[in-house]
Design a binder for these strands. Sequence first.
DNA 1: GTATTGGTTCGGAAACTACCGAACTAATTA
DNA 2: TAATTAGTTCGGTAGTTTCCGAACCAATAC
Lengths: 162, 162
Amino acid sequence: MQNISEEKCKLVEELGLNFEEKHNLPPLAGRIYAVMILSNVEGHSFEDIIEITCASKSSVSTNLNLLVQLKFIEYFTKTGDRKRYFRTTKNYLRITLEEYLESIEKELNLVKKVNSFNKEHNPEKFKKNKNLGLIFQEYLTTQKENLETTIQKMIMFKKELD
Amino acid sequence: MQNISEEKCKLVEELGLNFEEKHNLPPLAGRIYAVMILSNVEGHSFEDIIEITCASKSSVSTNLNLLVQLKFIEYFTKTGDRKRYFRTTKNYLRITLEEYLESIEKELNLVKKVNSFNKEHNPEKFKKNKNLGLIFQEYLTTQKENLETTIQKMIMFKKELD
DNA sequence: GTATTGGTTCGGAAACTACCGAACTAATTA
DNA sequence: TAATTAGTTCGGTAGTTTCCGAACCAATAC
């Protein structure tokens, strides 16, 4: 990490790790994304990212393209300038929330499947764990609803977002 | 997967993958855990698991011990029988929820840090994204509270659980 | 004692991931 | 046309993960 304050550098590492885990990104992609989240600049060039992250051209190329493909970032150009400039997409929070929603739905589905499988095949086990299973199912349902309303709220800010 | 129905086998794969992802377990550990969740039997022996999963002694040993260490499963013995028998711990749902809570707290913390960093260092960017940042923070807070009450509910069933 | 049972430990193989450097392409400039 | 710029593609390497088999250990059975 070059040319950035120590405070920022630490936050980049921390945020980067978080993105890496939560979105299953390679470490470098997580760091690049963190740099952009924490930056003043409207648009980092390819070169900027190489300098800041101290990574090779090829790695930066691969990871920038990955982030673009996953819609975490986007690029724009300036007339009379061959470079591409990258910035976070304005709706990355919505993407994150939608990812959460998807994963919650998947899990809720699984829990229901397990509950009904055990109900049918292991009735005495099901009875014993019924309350727990239902509490978990209830929790997931609440969370799903919560996510849906949050996403609705975000869409209300659409003009700002898109 | 031997000696289990096709339906169960499919569910084991699906559940196993889910545990693998959500709890960062090796594939075999995820499958073993899934087998136990979906089973009638009160206590699988070491041998049982080897047969069902078609994995080697050493792998089964390693992964059973991992699951025990992480408190996903526990073992008991029968008098006059040298074998160990494994079963899911009765509070694995609580463990899962507590893991969620921890990860939400971490993320909420990070979001706050990012918000205050941007407020200080990139004020115009912060202004532009303020509403989104706050909506996200609000969402995380609600979710955290939701989790806390759910865990409380679970603790109310303590007698059944522990 | 010796054999068997139940399980652990260790070394290594196979597969996967993340990154790098070198060679390359395609567009622009001189 | 030659050189430069901006970025991509490819082959390979280092590190990590997951699993296996073989050797091993400790307790019981013969």
